[in-house]
Design a binder for these strands. Structure first.
Length: 437
RNA sequence: GCCGCCGUAGCUCAGCGUGGUAGAGCGGCUGGCUGUUAACCAGUCGGUCGUCGGUUCGAGUCCGACCGGCGGCGCCA
């Protein structure tokens, strides 16, 4: 197949877009789209780095090339050689005049995804193994990849140690009703909801740790912000107060969001998303203030109850930057939260809320480090003491004040990409009604 | 778990009120076209009306049960 006397170099589409006209290159990729208009044949080639248009012209291209370009099916894998030229009519302003094309793996016809079937979300998710090749979903995944790298960089630059916690656990971190349970050699175990307890053990070894791993929630939530399996980034720091913890979240989110916005500009353009820089410090609103604001808008809820979605959305729409809701009542929080010295009904915890109505993306707080306080809290919450024995045990051996947070990767992405539904942020989303493909 | 809505062609949906053997647009396929980009033009294929049962001479249409999905709430990252 190699052309005699040529200086054909194998490059990616992205690389060849910045090469000079007249360069001879070899590309490998997939037929994203094609159109045959008689004596002209066009193929939109995708290789994972970018897209470029291939052109065949009767008279200029050989009969063989014309035949292959007309016959090739959508999504076939091809290797192609030809000459680059600029043309304003082509996507990305460049096209490849094909001199030589070979089909490496022919795709069956018809390709199931067309301009009619893209109207059906359920069809696209039933065929997610194929539909992820599309421009929108791949842009979201590239942004996701960058976000994850930025998160790792952030924590490593600050001396955090990356740890992984087990996915198979014997006790709940959150409420017991939301666990996936299964048989483990005759014992009842669960899929983890959070790495937090394991991080709390690890901080006494490493000082500051973070995790990034799947979390599972059996919540029967049919909302555009819930997955049953999602990736959570959690961080825990010894000797940190809730004040330190909120500052860390601010630094983390500004670092990650601004890096992603800068590095994945093209993908955000593809999605039509204009994003503004995230700035520190984030505004802080107390739970009581949220409740007052909600009541002024006719949304009533008892003090001590969690903030209803409608109220959270209302407040979220009032901001253009992420913000904290602080001073949650203990009754709306898990047992391990530490309370204020001056008011034992109020926890040292905060939710981090994305603006524009997107809502909660992270929760963090200071944990109880005192043995007797935690023991009393487990008892008054009617939790099985035996399940939390090791967690409690940590408080016997030099547990200092400490704080941490958990942030949902898909929730952040949904906000950054301005997506209607969180399932678009996952390559193979798991929701209450979907575990396939 | 709760409230509401929907299952008819590959996709989106009309038809159901007033029962009489099934429609549209898009897509697919075939052919045409020297600049396609959501192409265009001509032709053509396409249905166990979610499942089971009931009423009826006759059910996509009426009744019941079940299954599946969607939107929202609660809960949460």
């Amino acid at each position: 197949m190699r052309m005699q006397g040529s200086t054909t170099t194998r490059v990616t589409v992205e690389e060849c877009l910045s090469m000079q006209d007249g360069s001879t290159v070899e590309l490998r990729g997939w037929v994203a789209n094609k159109s045959d208009i008689g004596s002209l044949a066009f193929i939109l080639l995708r290789d994972g780095s970018n897209y470029i248009q291939l052109v065949g012209k009767k008279g200029t291209s050989s009969d063989d090339v014309m035949r292959v370009m007309k016959d090739v099916s959508i999504e076939s894998a091809v290797v192609v050689r030809g000459t680059l030229r600029s043309d304003a009519r082509a996507l990305n302003g460049k096209e490849l005049l094909v001199r030589d094309i070979e089909v490496i793996a022919r795709a069956e016809e018809p390709w199931p995804i067309n301009k009619s079937t893209v109207r059906s979300a359920s069809f696209l998710y039933d065929n997610r193994h194929l539909s992820i090749r599309g421009m929108k979903s791949s842009s979201i995944m590239r942004i996701r990849s960058e976000l994850i790298k930025a998160a790792f960089d952030f924590f490593y630059e600050r001396g955090f140690t990356f740890i992984t916690a087990p996915s198979i656990v014997s006790a709940a971190v959150e409420g017991g009703a939301t666990l996936f349970e299964f048989d483990y050699f005759g014992k009842r175990v669960y899929l983890t909801q959070s790495a937090q307890f394991y991080e709390e053990a690890a901080i006494c070894s490493f000082g500051r740790v973070f995790t990034m791993q799947p979390a599972f929630r059996a919540e029967k939530s049919k909302t555009p912000k819930h997955l049953t399996e999602f990736v959570m980034i959690e961080a825990e720091v010894a000797f940190n107060t809730q004040e330190d913890n909120m500052r860390l979240q601010e630094e983390f989110l500004t670092y990650v969001c601004n890096r992603v916005a800068e590095k994945r500009r093209r993908e955000f353009d593809t999605l039509g998303r204009k994003i503004r820089p995230v700035e520190r410090p984030f505004p802080r609103v107390r739970y009581d203030e949220v409740r007052d604001t909600a009541m002024k808008h006719g949304i009533e809820f008892e003090w001590g109850e969690d903030i209803p979605t409608e109220a959270e959305r209302l407040v979220s729409r009032m901001f253009s930057q992420p913000f904290f809701i602080t001073d949650y009542p203990l009754s709306a929080r898990s047992f391990y939260h530490m309370c204020r010295d001056d008011d034992p009904r109020i926890t040292l915890s905060a939710d981090l809320i994305a603006p524009e109505g997107f809502g909660e993306i992270a929760t963090g707080g200071q944990r109880i480090h005192d043995y007797n306080t935690l023991l009393e809290r487990i008892r008054s919450s009617n939790l099985p003491l035996e399940s939390f024995r090791w967690y409690l045990d940590l408080r016997r051996y030099g547990m200092p004040p400490h704080a941490g947070f958990g942030i949902g990767v898909e929730r952040v992405l949904r906000w950054l990409c301005n997506l209607k539904h969180i399932r678009a942020t996952s390559l193979f989303p798991r929701t209450i009604t979907r575990a396939y493909p």
